[in-house]
């Protein structure tokens, strides 16, 4: 786990990322608190906090006696939320750095369009 960031938030981010990339499909079972604790070597209470946060957000839901499952529509929900954060987390720092280097908006656009062509 990274230092400095709350562990439960790293847990929620990781599970959300697996839902977005499809490796954790909707209506399948999510890792249990104890599985997360053992795998990441973290306190079970911390893992539970992450799971509860996802349940409160409607990303996971509980099936009694079986465990937590990924809600239908979770993928779209997470994607929408991450899109909202995209400008703030990625575009803004990009613009700041570009300004420092004297790059124009046109040049940046050109780079984005052609970055895959670069060696």
């Amino acid at each position: 786990m990274d230092e400095g960031r709350p562990i439960f938030r790293q847990i929620t981010d990781q599970i959300e990322s697996s839902i977005i990339d499809g490796s954790l499909a909707e209506e399948t079972r999510a890792p249990s608190t104890n599985e997360l604790a053992a795998f990441h070597r973290i306190n079970p209470a911390t893992a539970a906090k992450g799971i509860n946060q996802l349940a409160a957000d409607g990303i996971l839901y509980k099936r009694r006696g079986i465990g937590m499952f990924v809600s239908a529509g979770a993928q779209a929900k997470i994607r929408a939320r991450r899109r909202e954060r995209f400008a703030h987390e990625y575009v803004y720092p990009l613009v700041i750095e570009a300004r420092k280097l004297g790059l124009s908006a046109e040049e940046i656009k050109d780079m984005i369009e052609h970055w895959e062509d670069q060696p």
Binding site: G4, E89, I96
Partner: peptide, 17 residues
């Protein structure tokens, strides 16, 4: 918004263990 403000101030933020 601390991280965004840091960028516009020209400073870097690192987590503290």
């Amino acid at each position: 918004t601390e991280r965004t403000r840091a960028h516009s101030h020209g400073v870097e933020l690192e987590p503290v263990s």
